[in-house]
Design a protein around this nucleic acid. Structure first.
Lengths: 229, 229
DNA sequence: CAGTGGTCTAGACCACTGA
DNA sequence: CAGTGGTCTAGACCACTGT
């Protein structure tokens, strides 16, 4: 049995949580650690690099490695496809296309996606259900100036996200989360009351500097997005 | 000039976004890639490993490396200390302790933190301001059965988060985000109307299997948490 | 069983940056 | 300028898992 980089990681983590290595403390350099663990420097390097990526340590050449002052807290959320999210909860997935139309991009969308006046967009409204209860309302806008072929796709059977994933590349994404009062239409589809506080997620997607799509996802009252780390 | 693992990463990424390697496609194995790039297998390995960590690829021994079907997208949010978040926006930071009391943990908290009946908690309510405008309402509960020394700390001058960060270790965190209607008290402190839709973040922190603290952060209407990737 | 990724090693050179 | 981390190499053995 030789030493794993994972062993080194957890050993260092233990030292930190035990207070042996308080925030700001200098961690021995890689050569010393390699000697004391009896392993190659590359192994120590990988352990330290991962701890750094995880926000536990801070490294600077010549200055050495230190325990982060305020352990950089970072929350990670995986953004699954709705269908998989629902089926992963052992619920039956249901999908309905509520609305579909092609129109000139409204002002707010033009501004968000940096579109040109007159650019056409495909606007879709869809409802995703889990065991028949409303689960997510999808308000989707696709840039037809960029992907005219979207106009020819029938989104009656499956959602636009699944089509987009398999056919449209993207490189940059901006996501944001917030809360908003339910509009009358949202309340109707989600089975709640107008004015209810709804959790909202928005995502803008780009490829080669041009907007691909914008989506606003709205959830019924009480929905929470959770993560552990 | 030799090949960097970063070069390999971006080269593979380019192939993917260009549609050269569509979702589900099999990527050549490490030995082949190393030969075609003219570098060591370890270099290829690092590139592929990072792409896997980032959710772009999927690897299985013997089966090989494939482009993820639904590129598992992961949103990362850094959770800064409020003071730093506000000062980072070049605004002046303000802090007020609104309420402080020691009490038996209420039922909902006992359940969340798996506390025992009769355990005491320190309950603090604080308001963080940016340029004097309400920015974040902090509803903090600290497990005194675990950290009795918190009872002796004066939180009048600076928030409990800063104290906790520097003195209390933690290993497990659960965060969740959602929306809720403003209570009368929240509306009062945040300068909005009762019933307004508010964005809410909750965090439970654990160490050595025991609850450390629970906090609920509430933001004024319109607040959004944003990230890019 | 055989192919693929996972990890370690011992050594080397380089890039950055603090003293 | 000297110390530290960043990366690469060539080779090795191992762990897992599809066929």
């Amino acid at each position: 049995m030789s030493i794993n980089y994972k062993d080194i990681k957890s050993e260092i983590l233990t030292r930190i949580t035990k207070g042996d290595l308080p925030p700001g403390a200098l961690v021995p350099n890689e050569v010393e650690l390699a000697e004391s663990y009896g392993c190659a420097r590359a192994t120590v390097n990988r352990a330290m690099r991962e701890l750094t990526d995880e926000g536990i340590l801070e490294r600077r050449r010549k200055a050495g490695t230190r325990v982060r002052m305020a352990p950089l807290r970072e929350a990670r959320f995986s953004i699954p496809v709705v269908r998989e999210e629902i089926e992963g909860q052992a619920a039956s997935y249901g999908y309905t296309l509520l609305n579909r139309q092609i129109l000139h991009a409204p002002d707010w969308l033009r501004e968000r996606l940096k579109l040109v006046v007159g650019d056409d967009v495909l606007h879709l409204t869809c409802l995703h259900r889990a065991d028949n209860a409303p689960y997510q309302l999808e308000d989707r806008w696709i840039n037809l100036a960029r992907f005219p072929q979207a106009a020819g796709v029938d989104f009656a059977a499956s959602g636009p996200n699944e089509w987009l994933i398999s056919t449209v590349p993207f490189s940059d994404v901006e996501m944001s989360f917030g809360a908003a009062a339910a509009t009358a239409a949202q309340a109707n589809y989600l089975g709640c009351t107008t004015g209810d506080a709804l959790f909202e997620a928005e995502r803008s997607t780009w490829w080669e500097g041009r907007a691909v799509t914008f989506v606003r996802l709205t959830y019924p009252p009480g929905y929470r997005m959770t993560t552990r780390y």
